[in-house]
Design a protein around this nucleic acid. Sequence first.
DNA 1: CTGAAAGCGCTTACAG
DNA 2: CTGAAAGCGCTTACAG
Lengths: 350, 350
Amino acid sequence: MDYPKARRITQRHIAERAAVSQSVVSLVLNGKADAISRIPKGTRDRVMAVIRETGYVADPAARRLAGVGNKIFGVFTYEPAFADNSTDFYTPLLLGIEAKAEELGCDLLMFTSAPVENGRRRIFHENNRLALADGCLLLGREMAHDDLLRLVESRLPFVAVGRRDVEGVPYVGVDYVAATSELARRARELGHERFYYLHFDSPAESVRDRKRAMDDLRALPFVEVAIRASDGTDIAADWAAIREFRPTVLFVDRAERAESLYRLATEAGLAIPGDLSMVVLEETSQADGRGVDFTRLSPPRGLLGSSAVGLLGRILSSNDNPSGSELRTLLDCEVKDGATLAVPNKGNVL
Amino acid sequence: MDYPKARRITQRHIAERAAVSQSVVSLVLNGKADAISRIPKGTRDRVMAVIRETGYVADPAARRLAGVGNKIFGVFTYEPAFADNSTDFYTPLLLGIEAKAEELGCDLLMFTSAPVENGRRRIFHENNRLALADGCLLLGREMAHDDLLRLVESRLPFVAVGRRDVEGVPYVGVDYVAATSELARRARELGHERFYYLHFDSPAESVRDRKRAMDDLRALPFVEVAIRASDGTDIAADWAAIREFRPTVLFVDRAERAESLYRLATEAGLAIPGDLSMVVLEETSQADGRGVDFTRLSPPRGLLGSSAVGLLGRILSSNDNPSGSELRTLLDCEVKDGATLAVPNKGNVL
DNA sequence: CTGAAAGCGCTTACAG
DNA sequence: CTGAAAGCGCTTACAG
């Protein structure tokens, strides 16, 4: 793809018309305060007038090459953001990111060109345009840890959305451990003692955090917890495994699976929540208003996005030095009361 | 001993390690076929090996400055895309854009930094990063025609999403005239003779196109058409005006208003569609599944986005020359049968 | 076949 | 106070 040479106005043109040298134009435009103050006001005004007349704007590529920032934040999504099943997840995140970027006066460079291999994107591909960004935002449930290490090494400032278990990676994440524990606590208080947790089979931090909270449950007296990883391809098998354990409450980390299990349960004649309570550890789909009103977690996705942009902005700003704990922020996760968690029926019918 | 500052790998480094000159590296990387063919295969392989080892990627800013394309498409949205009431409109569009960009291997530069004035963005603001993009996509219901003219003049290749009445502006739009006429034809066939059209008070092309179709209706025998522009601030007044005309069918261009009018009508004891049929000339909100199932237009938003990206790609490609009509494409708009258009009751009760 | 060099448009130390 | 110049990393016509 060739770049059709648009006749651009340059600082040389401005300089000619204002009868100064090109460097004075550059100085007036973005010199340091004390350098500018040495230029007589008359000269400054003359230059500014010509700039306004001509609508001159500095070429960002040249600025970049000369080593200054451009207020461009790269956005990299590990899973393709536009895939239908990711829309619910990414849209609120991206809205938060955009809102904050607008507030900071930043442009957003979406790295849609990263090639997809095995369902995930490769960030360091040939011809990646990472260097055009002042810093970068990383989104995705799973991120390859070697990519993250390489990014740290590259010195490109970046912020991951979601907690990451990699040394030196700044992130803004969600406190899934606390929120999951809170839901478990509520279930326990209602009298549940047999917990089943069906979770996605993934090494992602957000998956592991939820699992840790469920694991910790075992320390409580009278509580029994069964945990099963599932790749989601055989829900019927998952359901069979669940029934065998005879839980009174079922935790599921993915809303879509919860829907399937809900159907299987009701088809089997079970009353939810009476015979079996259900809890979902993520937000349910907003797409249709007809879904089950699950008791669930509702991560603050908009805030997550805007906070990540805010943190990246602070990292890039020379007169701001985020502390170690600010570089590793966890946001509180809201619990939404739905209609699927209640006191268990007396006789367990499963 | 001082460590050399961890710097970017450049072509010079590659050249040193492969024992060639820097220009040979550049040639191997992106020279024309006949130039490359003159470099012995051994040399080429040596250079490529070093490039692979080091993971070298050309600096896009330098490439840009040297005058070649970067496969970056700018995306400019006149209305802030993240505003809550625009999400329904922009999201499918952006999904289509992203999908096609990924297919073409392009990155997307979202101009979120454009300052908002009076609810719309200014594209030519100081420090705009337009020049970083190979070409640009323009989204928005209304676009300032002087901005468009200036853009044409700037020679930056661009494509507008939505038909535009400005000389030299390439676009991909929706054929609202045909689709609106089709809906009117159906209403006429069902026996409707008194049409009311309430439309947004805006000079936008998409608004004018729908209005033209409604205007054309007047040519039909027995048909009476009343048309009212509304800024949406006083729906009650709009409803009063509608009642006074006693239409049997009400066309509305905005789904949100149609919802309000539907409420007013049913509160007034009217049966819809019996006493009053309603037709909406845009897609209704997907946000909740509980809205009215309007008979309506459903513009192909995803396709609109991907087609616009495709067209921009063709414009930028040197070996492709879109014809005049391809530069001004209108897509067919689907009509969705809902529950609000039917044969009118015998006695008009309005 | 390969290298030296000009040039893209900027920033910024340096010299008048 | 202001200008000439080096340098950022690349592409590409031009000379050997």
